[in-house]
Write a protein that binds this DNA or RNA. Structure first.
Length: 492
RNA sequence: CGGGAAGUGGCGCAGCCCGGUAGCGCACCUGGUUUGGGACCAGGGGGCCGCAGGUUCGAAUCCUGUCUUCCCGACCA
């Protein structure tokens, strides 16, 4: 079973699909636009989820769960929100089926079961949650309310791609309520930092923190902050968002609290989310033509050991060494698998584990045993080294750290090399066409200009970086004065 | 939702034009030999030909519809 992977240079999209499908992360399903997350992909998601969940809890948040269904009238309450999501909602209109009188065994929607009010399958949960918060919040003593939810959501997209954009996807959404705007903004920024921390340090993906322009803002938000990552094809991908919602939802759902002065005020809100889309980012940022490359810290499997032997006597000797090594590694908290199945030969196993992106592979043969060494191969660079069995476990532990650091370093070097400062419209178009990546350019601050640029180049403003230095200049498109550069890119 | 392509054992494909009841490689099962980068020999199992209609004595093959996927566009995390 040779699993050919389309090289990136031949067809980047196909390469991505090959990695996801052949790497065993996910599969297509019988349902349009929906995918099956397979055990290997789900193990990855679980690792990501667990790390993030810990970080949320460490910053004072608790988990809860709200309904999948949103009454239509809820969605209507916040105007911007309603407009933003209306076009991509799945709607439940009936609650019962019945036998089709015309076709034996067939079912039809029972027209008698029409719902008085349609239920929307949540595209996000602001409305149901704020409707509940109204009853939960009375005074400033109830604040801040810091809640997160792990859930699935549905957005009826026209065109789907595994992990990057599917009709249903898994995510986490934090929804917090605060007594003051300052506190809510602080929360928005804190969670953005948590995301950046997670994505960079666990996923080894460098991100740029920034603010969205009005055009790119979340429907219903006052400000949308984001982390933007760069993929190997030069396209940007939004890896997480954190919104300052102001009082938009508390006003829409009439959520008030008594402040210390005994006066009623609307509360201030935030919401923030990351999704299984991050897996797509991971695949596209680190993968190569041999398959996936998993960052050690979230890899479903960190180390695989492959025995190489002739006959059972040799195998027994290798087994003994391997079992000792495995206990040592496990004691260090490292996940390890002994791939001693007899139905595949070493070469096949090597290729398979490379496809799956296992960070470290150890091959142990009779020859190695004689020399008290093992062959240690790292997935990120493909390098192989002969390493003494003595102290091998701690060598591996260090190597995992090194791989993690190298992946981040490599991705950062690529990212940094693909942030191009341009000052003319010709340059701007040229860089987008020929090089890709982020283009740092002056912009006059108007939505019209942003639109025009998008029409002509497909590039959008990914963000206005948070640590952006002030710099006087002229808008790349209109020539009007500008006070700072913003980051453009063609995005996923 | 428009334009293009594709759906045949688990995977990759041939067969379709010219209708006659399905084949190849890999994978799988059994036995044996093997094992340092995708092993070999022998034997064997597995297919509603995406689904639904229609034409026909007979449909993988012709016709109609429909579903799913890919690529490219318009919309979005």
């Amino acid at each position: 079973m040779s699993k050919e992977i389309t090289p990136r240079t031949t067809d980047y999209s196909q390469w991505y699909n090959d990695l996801v499908l052949k790497g065993g992360l996910a599969d297509y399903s019988a349902v349009r636009g929906c995918m099956v997350i397979k055990p290997y992909g789900f193990a990855l998601w679980e690792n990501m989820r667990d790390r993030m969940d810990r970080m949320f809890k460490d910053t004072g948040h608790v988990n809860a769960y709200f309904p999948l269904f949103v009454p239509r009238t809820f969605l209507e309450k916040e105007e911007g929100h309603a407009e933003g999501f209306a076009k991509e909602c799945a709607v439940v209109t009936h609650y019962r089926l019945k036998a089709d009188p015309g076709r034996k065994g067939a079912l039809i929607v029972d027209p008698e079961s029409k719902l008085e009010e349609e239920l929307i399958i949540r595209p996000t949960s602001e409305t149901v949650i704020w409707n509940a918060y109204r009853d939960w919040i009375r005074s400033y003593r109830d604040l801040p309310l810091l809640i997160n939810q792990w859930a699935n959501v549905v957005r009826w997209e026209m065109r789907t791609r595994l992990f990057l954009r599917t009709t249903e996807f898994l995510w986490q959404e934090g929804h917090t309520a605060h007594a003051t705007a300052e506190e809510a903004v602080e929360e928005t920024r804190r969670m953005l930092d948590v995301y950046a921390d997670f994505v960079e340090n666990e996923m080894a993906l460098p991100v740029i923190k920034g603010v969205k322009t009005a055009n790119e803002r979340f429907a219903g938000a006052v400000d949308t902050y984001c982390i933007e990552a760069l993929m190997q094809d030069g396209k940007a991908l939004q890896a997480g968002t954190s919104h300052f919602l102001g009082q938009n939802f508390s006003k829409a759902f009439d959520v008030k609290f008594l402040n210390r002065e005994n006066r009623l005020e609307h509360v201030w809100a935030t919401s923030w989310g990351t999704s299984t889309r991050l897996i797509g980012a991971l695949v596209m940022a680190h993968g190569d033509d041999n398959g996936l490359v998993m960052p050690p810290r979230i890899a479903p499997l960190q180390v695989v050991i492959v025995p190489i032997h002739k006959g059972d006597e040799q195998k027994a000797l290798i087994d003994a060494k391997v079992h000792a090594l495995m206990s040592e590694l496990r004691a260090m908290g490292i996940s390890v698998k002994y791939d001693d199945s007899d139905n595949a030969r070493p070469g096949w196993k090597f290729a398979e584990h490379e496809l799956k992106g296992v960070p470290v592979r150890i091959a142990l043969g009779a020859r190695d045993l004689q020399n008290s060494v093992a062959e240690v191969a790292r997935r990120d660079t493909g390098e192989k080294a002969s390493v003494s069995l003595d102290g091998l476990a701690s060598h591996v532990r260090n190597l995992l750290d090194e791989i993690q650091a190298n992946l981040l370093h490599r991705a950062r070097a690529y990212r940094d090399a693909h942030i191009t400062r341009v000052d003319t419209w010709d340059e701007f178009k040229k860089v987008l066409e020929e090089k890709g990546g982020f283009v740092s350019a002056h912009w006059d601050g108007t939505g019209e200009t942003e639109e025009r640029i998008k029409e002509e180049t497909k590039a959008t403003i990914r963000c206005i970086p948070l640590d952006n230095p002030a710099e006087d200049g002229a808008c790349i498109f209109s020539g009007k004065p500008s006070r700072e550069r913003v980051l453009f890119a063609i995005a996923y």
